[in-house]
Design a protein around this nucleic acid. Structure first.
Length: 892
DNA sequence: CCTTTCACG
DNA sequence: ACGTACGTGAAAGGA
């Protein structure tokens, strides 16, 4: 087999790529689209050609051999586009990381180096492949040397290939003749002047007949058209000069040691880091090579770990025995399609084990062997997102006991603003060692692979490596928690909460599916009617759900005045449409349509999609590591945003029912918890006093801010005061308040000033919190929850302002989140301790929902109220309202 | 995949 | 003059 060598013209490809893909830029604002496009082309070519060697040629900035010659003649050669320049060093960095050598020589153009390299390679019996965006290189084509010219098009990259015969076939001249074609027609991008009046067509025709310019000049008299003939004579010297410029030199004095261009492991961890940094996400799945030994995994230096795979019952029993003796271990359950396929363990500091199921050793058998271990009250367990594992284990009749640490929750407590809490992150942050992420090894989305596709030794190190990581990160996280004074937050709030959330998820919320079906049908009927009415009024059918199409109808066809614009076009948000209500009858129809379609799709269809058909229950996932403030979030379904404000939406709460007729729903919500928290942490006497009187807080605020006696506060004043109170909690701004209340900015300012005058310590708190955030870089809640706010020191006004609002709001929202979490744990434990049948089933930020047994109503009411009101001891009372009902709708 | 819209506290 | 409230999740359209 002949060896293939790929020779790439760096500048012309990055140039072509630059314009071929949309603008991308990295964090420093440098465009990356040229590099991205270059790599896109490169990967495509590598996949197709699978060359043995590769090199990329670049021009160095200094004048080159032919360039110098040209300068005497006509001045400076054009450089590359300004906006591309910063990308070239970036590209070189990427190529260096990939171990792809560069061909550069001071004083020579990339074309010349490429030409020389191709000729030498050909002489030595290799197959050279030249990749360039410029057609100049076509002159180098032979029956061995292939020229590949990629064209970036909408549908992807298309590549034109030329051997010598293809050139003759497609253009009609030989490669050598092509130089003369260039000499006649010129090339503005290369600043080859050519001959005026001779373009590509004429040039080809002339060369086809006379084969070179010397011969053409000699026969200039016979050349047609006459303009070409005259110009060729007049610009004879320029034509010869152009030929010199167009001729690629193949005699550059360079020694090529082919072995150093050998194509090796270009997808290495360093490249991975670079791609991640540059956000070249689509290239990341190129890093998993399941068929070969996976270098990413094998190269990760989880220093002392001893990894071993276990595939038989006997072997695993031995391991379980060892783990019992070790007394503590970390574990990770690997699942695919909701079915576990293996478990990895780490124990005795260095032992990493991967146990996998097989036909001989089923997952049921595996679980049975592991059961005593998981259920042991003495052996300590370390997990990462233990709640998930608890669900899996429960399915096999196993109760996880003595969970001593959850590294995911620990990581969240240390920094709640991260997007993910992966094993790779833990390894980097707490062990100072890189480890590939799941996405790197298995990919993601549709093309996600199974870990069973990995070779056994890779699979073992990947799975057991993760257990090793959490085993060792645990100590570091504990240490950090101590340093940060967050031990109480972790051990007394977040850790015990895991079990509470697990129980809520496990128990679920019963749905009256018959009622739900009726509700959806009712909505569908109304939507049908509205749709027809809207089409009628609009005079045509269109997709009402498309803001784009709706915008065209409203603002172009019906010529309604447009309010706001979005990045992409007209805004059709409810806020905008509301202002057009009286302008056209279509508006109210659309608003109602929107409301109903939301209810049908998100709440009707959406709920149906997640109901367990056997039990008619929904089992939401309560995520403990999503929010930046410490709240929990709810998904699939989201039970924290079930409609309540509007009557039509509120009706859906009638389908949320207790699991059987012996039960009722008991709802308890904190009254004004965030304002109470504010009163406490700001230590504002007036505000504290206001809450101690137990009167309506918005009315009190109104009386204070608007300086009227309490009994004379109008409903309008109260409602304005309510908006001010909200604004205060969010980190108020006069503009937003004025928008919200539809008043002038001046008035809004007066309200805020009035508020701060009456509650001076609130202002003091806001100022001090911002100052503290700026000095230490983070803010904290009453229970030590911490949120870093880098934006607070930004030079960018908008970012800084945002940072300041976040600094003011986070301690308030976060402390309220802490308090209700404490209440949840206390309620959960009380119900358990007293062996009651009632269950906590839902939390909605300031509200707890309990499914209460009919015999336990009074007792549970008392527990719920007491535990919630005494969850934290503030300088203001915590007040809880409770409601009992047969459906969630009734508990209002 | 990103944007728009809208549901909740 | 800047560009506007804090925290979430789901569905749909349209690249």
């Amino acid at each position: 087999m002949q060896k293939k060598i790929m020779l790439v013209d760096g500048h012309s490809i990055i140039n072509r790529a630059f314009y071929g893909v949309p603008l991308l830029s990295n964090a420093e604002g440098i465009y990356t689209n040229g590099v991205y496009g270059f790599l896109n082309i490169l990967f495509k070519l590598l996949d197709e050609d699978k060359p043995d060697y590769i090199a990329v040629a670049f021009d160095l900035s200094a004048p080159t051999f032919r360039h110098e010659a040209f300068k005497e003649y006509k001045g400076n050669r054009k450089g590359m586009p300004e906006e591309l320049k910063p990308q070239v060093p970036l590209l070189k960095e990427v190529l260096d990381a990939m171990g792809i050598k560069r061909l550069e020589k001071e004083g020579y153009e990339a074309d010349d180096i490429l030409g020389t390299a191709a000729k030498r390679a050909e002489e030595q019996g290799m197959e050279p492949i030249i990749v360039s965006g410029d057609r100049d290189l076509l002159q180098l084509a032979t029956d061995k040397i292939k020229i590949r010219i990629p064209k970036t098009k909408k549908g992807g990259t298309e590549i034109e290939d030329y051997f010598a015969k293809d050139l003759i076939e497609k253009i009609g001249v030989t490669p050598l003749e092509y130089i003369d074609v260039k000499a006649l027609m010129g090339d503005s991008s290369d600043n080859i002047p050519g001959v005026p009046g001779i373009g590509e067509k004429t040039a080809i025709k002339i060369i086809q007949e006379y084969h070179n310019i010397e011969n053409a000049i000699a026969n200039a008299d016979y050349i047609k058209p006459s303009r070409a003939s005259a110009n060729l004579k007049a610009y004879e010297e320029q034509a010869r000069q152009s030929k010199y410029l167009a001729t690629i030199c193949t005699e550059v004095p360079i020694e090529f040691d082919w072995e150093q261009y050998k194509l090796d492991s270009i997808m290495n961890p360093r490249v991975y880091e670079l791609f991640k940094q540059l956000e070249f996400k689509s290239f990341l799945d190129r890093f998993s090579m399941p068929s070969e030994s996976n270098s990413l995994i094998m190269n990760s230096n989880l220093s002392e770990g001893e990894y071993r795979a276990v595939g038989t019952k006997e072997d695993f029993e031995k391991i379980v025995q060892e783990i019992f003796e070790a007394g503590r271990f970390s574990f990770i359950i690997f699942s695919e399609n909701h079915k576990p396929i293996g478990i990895s363990f780490c124990y005795a500091d260095i032992k990493g084990i991967w146990v996998e199921q097989s036909e001989e050793f089923t997952v049921e058998e595996l679980m049975a062997v592991a059961k005593p271990l998981f259920e042991s009250n003495t052996v300590e367990k370390i997990a990462h997102n233990a709640k998930d594992d608890m669900h899996i284990l429960k399915h096999f009749g196993i109760t996880l006991r003595n969970l001593t640490f959850d590294t995911m929750i620990g990581g969240y407590v240390l920094n709640p603003t991260k997007e993910t809490y992966g094993y790779d992150d833990l390894s980097q942050e707490f062990l100072g060692q890189t480890f590939p992420s799941e996405e790197e090894i298995l990919g993601k989305g549709k093309s996600k692979k199974s870990i069973m596709d990995l070779e056994e030794k890779d699979r073992t190190k990947f799975a057991a490596g993760q257990a090793y990581i959490i085993y060792h990160s645990e100590k570091q996280i504990r240490k950090k928690l101590k340093e940060n004074n967050q031990e109480q937050l972790y051990y007394e709030i977040e850790h015990p909460l895991i079990e509470v959330l697990f129980s809520m998820e496990e128990y679920g919320f019963k749905i009256d599916t018959k009622k739900l079906k009726e509700y959806v049908t009712e909505l569908e009927e109304k939507i049908d009617i509205l749709t027809k009415e809207i089409y009628d009024i609009a005079g045509e059918e269109f997709n009402i759900n498309s803001p784009k199409q709706l915008g065209v109808i409203l603002f172009e066809k019906l010529m309604l005045p447009m309010g706001k614009k979005t990045k992409t076009g007209y805004s059709t948000a409810a806020e905008v449409l509301e202002k057009l209500r009286n302008k056209h009858i279509i508006i109210e129809k659309i608003l109602e349509y929107r409301q109903l379609i939301k209810l049908k799709t998100t709440y009707g269809d959406g709920l149906f999609a997640v109901v367990n058909k056997d039990t008619n229950k929904v089992h939401s996932t309560f995520n403990q590591t999503i929010t930046a403030t410490g709240r929990i979030s709810s998904t699939e379904p989201n039970l924290q945003n079930i409609p309540i404000k509007l009557e039509m939406g509120r009706k859906i709460r009638k389908v949320f029912i207790p699991s059987d007729e012996d039960y009722l729903l008991l709802d308890a919500d904190y009254s004004q918890i965030e304002l109470r928290v504010l009163a406490h942490i700001a230590q504002d006497e007036t505000l504290i006093h206001a809450f101690r009187t137990g009167e309506d807080i918005h009315k009190i605020t109104a009386s204070q801010v608007f300086k009227v006696p309490f009994d004379e506060v109008t409903p309008r004043q109260r409602s304005n005061a309510k908006a001010v109170n909200f604004g205060i909690v969010y980190g108020i701004g006069a503009f937003s308040l004025s928008q919200d209340l539809n008043i002038s900015r001046k008035e809004a300012e007066a309200y805020i000033e009035g508020y701060f005058e009456k509650y001076p310590n609130v202002r003091k708190y806001m100022d001090e919190t911002i100052k503290q955030a700026r000095e230490q870089g983070y803010v904290t809640t009453l229970f030590g929850r911490r949120r870093v706010i880098p934006d607070i020191s930004s030079n960018n006004f908008t970012r800084r302002s945002f940072g300041e609002r976040v600094a003011m709001n986070t301690p308030i929202q976060g402390t309220a989140a802490d308090i209700i979490k404490i209440a949840m744990i206390k309620v959960f434990n009380k119900l358990k301790e007293k062996n009651l049948k009632s269950r906590l089933i839902l939390q909605v930020h300031d509200e707890l929902l309990v499914e209460v047994h009919k015999d336990e109503v009074d007792e549970v009411k008392q527990i719920l109220k007491h535990e919630m009101e005494h969850a934290a001891k503030l300088d203001v009372p915590l007040d809880v309202d409770m409601h009992l009902g047969k459906t969630w709708f009734e508990t209002k």
